[in-house]
């Protein structure tokens, strides 16, 4: 678990994970296109993320494809967030999102009602 926290402790590595969240299975070149980092830096970060098991990679021909591996994060979640807390936390997070978007609409002079899903 140390490797996971170490890998997550750098903003650029989290950005890399976000990028894979958007589009899983990217090559090094594709990742470099979307990020403001040198190829060498991305390569280095990918190695660390893969060691921490946060990224899985497979070869396709001569290209290496990178995928987000959610398992280590799931293990952290399982360890510290029990099944009862998760519903309350979800409710709080929904409430926050709802209130913030309602506040946004007030500022823009729009309706204050939150949209029904």
């Amino acid at each position: 678990m140390d490797a996971v926290f170490k890998a997550l402790a750098t903003a650029s590595r989290r950005t890399l994970l976000d990028e894979l969240r958007k589009e899983n299975g990217q090559t090094l070149s594709e990742l470099c296109e979307h990020l403001d980092m040198t190829r060498q830096a991305v390569t280095k970060h990918l190695v660390l993320l893969e060691k921490a098991n946060l990224i899985a990679s497979v070869w396709r021909g001569r290209e290496k494809l990178h995928y987000l591996n959610p398992m280590p994060l799931h293990e952290i979640y399982e360890r510290w967030i029990g099944k009862y807390e998760r519903h309350r936390l979800q409710a709080l997070s929904d409430l926050k999102k709802g209130l913030e978007s309602a506040a946004g609409r007030i500022r823009r002079g729009g309706q204050t009602k939150t949209k029904k899903k």
Binding site: E23, N24, G25, E30, N53, A56, Y67, L68, N69, P70, M71
Partner: peptide, 11 residues
Amino acid sequence: MMKKDQFVYVT
């Protein structure tokens, strides 16, 4: 790029 869905597992 085509949107994909995937299952990823490492053991």
